[in-house]
């Protein structure tokens, strides 16, 4: 039987709220913290920080490219700077400024990008960014984080502030269950977390798909399949060891992400195993298509980003 190592589901919270609250926690320790936004403070939740520290918050207006350049300039002067917008604009519209002004000089800019993935919901495909992990992961020296719940998001914000170098963190609009125990949870940059042991198959998930993977693990266990469930919160640099071990010990990997199957977690995991322990990697994610409007939860179901589909795909992969 598989063994659970995860906490209980306490309540639901959107990771963007956790981000806003974490910035306030961080500001208490870091008087050099500056937060930038591009007219989305109410949505990115930097508004929580703005209210507490109005003198250390600057709205750049609807000009995400400029915000990234400004963040780079601030970083050259030695201050800690967080720049926030929707994933679509932070990673998409501002991509080249992030590349040339932030990553090329390896500046200490932290990008907090909310509204990642299709769980943006009703706004539709123009705002549902399923490409940001791919875009940010390819940049030399960029760290990419995709936390799974409230506890992990807050810990990740504090950890990325201690780390010196460009960092992209994506989080979401949708309220999701908190499963990590705030008393015991430790965030280690670049280290995956095994949430359930098992040797039949490994389910490797990131972001809001981690909780779905945990649920899938439970359902599979009831059906006699012991799935190892791994949370990869840091997509770059990725935890090669935990992936190689999973490949060796289970022989089959299912990846789950609220992102395109091209260039995201599934690709990152595949890159590791093809060079080390080549085993099949089946990718659950957004296929090569755009999303559309609708409430987040039914949308996630439609795109197969739910526990039931993880169970189905896993069983098919195992021929059961």
């Amino acid at each position: 039987m598989g063994k659970d190592r995860y906490y209980r589901i306490m309540d639901k919270k959107a990771t963007r709220d956790s981000y806003g609250e974490a910035l306030v926690m961080l500001a208490e320790k870091r008087p050099d913290l500056i937060v930038l936004d591009a007219d989305l403070a109410a949505a990115t939740k930097t508004g929580i920080y703005k209210k507490a520290y109005p003198d250390r918050f600057f709205d750049c207006g609807i000009a995400e490219a400029d915000m990234m350049g400004v963040a780079a300039g601030i970083a050259t002067t030695g201050k800690l700077v967080f720049a926030s917008s929707f994933a679509m604009f932070a990673a998409g519209r501002a991509f080249e400024i992030v590349r040339n002004s932030i990553c090329y000089p390896h500046l200490n800019v932290k990008i907090g990008a909310t509204h990642a993935g299709i769980s943006v919901g009703e706004d539709g495909a123009s705002h549902q960014c399923n490409e940001d992990i791919a875009l940010m992961r390819v940049l030399p020296g960029m760290t990419v984080i995709n936390p799974a719940d409230d506890v992990e998001t807050k810990a990740a914000v504090l950890a990325m502030a201690d780390y010196v170098g460009p960092t992209y963190m994506r989080f979401g609009r949708l309220a999701i269950p908190t499963f990590n125990d705030p008393k015991t949870y430790k965030f280690e940059l670049g280290k995956g977390i095994e949430l359930r042991s098992g040797n039949d198959v490994a389910i490797i998930a990131t972001g809001l798909m981690v909780n779905e993977a945990i649920e899938a693990g439970k359902i599979l266990a009831e059906q006699g399949i012991n799935a190892r469930v791994i949370n990869i919160h840091t997509i770059k640099p990725i935890d090669r060891d935990i992936i190689i071990r999973a490949a060796k010990e289970t022989g089959k990997i299912i990846t789950v992400e609220e992102h395109s199957v091209i260039g995201g977690l599934g690709s990152a995991v595949s890159e590791v195993v093809t060079e080390t322990v080549p085993v099949p990697v089946i990718k659950i994610g957004v296929q090569d298509r755009f999303g559309h409007s609708g409430p987040a939860v039914p949308l996630l179901k439609e795109f197969g980003l739910c526990a039931d589909n993880i169970v189905k795909v896993t069983k098919e992969a195992l021929g059961k």
Binding site: D66, G69, G73, I74, A75, T76, K79, N100, S101
Partner: peptide
């Protein structure tokens, strides 16, 4: 004082330096 070459980006970074100053 700043990596440049992709046009338009330098003045943006200069604004960040000035803001910080």
């Amino acid at each position: 004082d700043m990596s440049t070459g992709s046009l338009g980006q330098g003045i943006s970074a200069a604004c960040g330096m000035a803001l910080s100053g």
